[in-house]
């Protein structure tokens, strides 16, 4: 097999955790998780609530440590580079990794335009001729452009919940991050908004590596390529989504996906 074919079958690993542990003070919420997240694939994290999915995903952009008393151990490799290595500035890491939260959180004092541009403004890009096309592209990517193109100067908090969440996706995409983290991005939304976001994720993952927490197993089955099942701070098993859902290796995974607990 040629190297080229090899990479086709085995996509490059964009993001990988090795023995990742996360603590809140003395309490350990994530117990040594090793997971590979391939490039331009959507990895879904599932599991009952409180099992450490949010904590895990928040370690991937070093947001976890912003909580007072919280810290992480182990390695997280972003394109082979350990982002927990000493001397790495978490701020620079976060510029390369987009994040979308469970509840939409646009900046209420900023217009729609400024919200989308905020990451670039932070990076020092101020020229409107540069910003305009990026804002448009990002809003189009987030499937929001048609709805807001005539009200870019209005504040983003007047939009509906689903639109606000797509605005947050556009905001995250504007800096063209290679990785997008999403923590239950649709759990606060109605089914129609959820469907729109799922559609746009299927499109997005052609260009972006997505890691998504979801409490909704149908959602994981519909849109993810790889699924990891978490339980009580451990990652029980991970693998291709169809394999996890049709033929799980671990009994606990099977019990969870067949709805027998969680």
């Amino acid at each position: 097999m040629s190297a080229d074919e090899q990479t086709k079958l085995q996509p490059r690993i964009e993001l990988e955790t090795i023995g990742l542990q996360a603590y809140f003070g003395e309490t350990r919420a994530v117990h040594g998780v090793s997971l590979r997240m391939p490039r331009h694939r959507l990895t879904a994290l599932i599991g009952p609530s409180g099992c450490g999915k949010s904590t895990f995903i928040r370690c991937l952009n070093r947001l976890h440590e912003e909580i007072p008393g919280a810290r992480a151990e182990g390695q997280v490799l972003l394109e082979g580079e350990d982002i927990y290595r000493r001397g790495v500035d978490p701020v620079l890491i976060r510029r390369r990794i987009g994040m979308v939260f469970q509840r939409p959180n646009p900046f209420p004092t900023m217009s729609i335009y400024e919200n989308v541009a905020s990451g670039l403004l932070l990076a020092g890009v101020k020229d409107r001729r540069t910003l305009d096309p990026i804002v448009e592209r990002s809003l189009k990517q987030a499937a929001l452009w048609d709805e807001v193109k005539d009200q870019l100067k209005r504040t983003g908090t007047r939009l509906s919940g689903g639109q606000q969440q797509r605005l947050c996706i556009a905001r995250a995409l504007a800096v063209e991050p290679p990785v997008l983290l999403m923590d239950e991005p649709t759990s606060a939304l109605d089914p129609i908004s959820t469907a729109r976001i799922e559609e746009l994720l299927l499109e997005l993952k052609k260009a972006v590596t997505v890691v998504m927490v979801t409490h909704n197993m149908q959602q994981a089955a519909r849109i993810s390529d790889q699924t990891a099942f978490f339980l009580l701070g451990d990652m029980v098993e991970s693998g291709p989504t169809d394999a996890i859902f049709t033929n799980p290796k671990d009994q606990r995974t099977e019990q969870y996906i067949t709805g027998r607990f969680g």
Binding site: N61, L63, E66, V91, L92, R94, R95, I97, G98, M99, F101, R103, N105, P106, F107, S118, G119, L122, A123, C168, R171, A172, V175
Partner: peptide, 22 residues
């Protein structure tokens, strides 16, 4: 809300930028 601060931090805002924006 903490979520506002996290929105800024996740975009790569420094401590001061987070205080300003969020």
């Amino acid at each position: 809300p903490t979520l506002q601060r996290e929105a800024a931090q996740a975009l790569g805002a420094t401590r001061w930028e987070t205080i300003w924006i969020a």
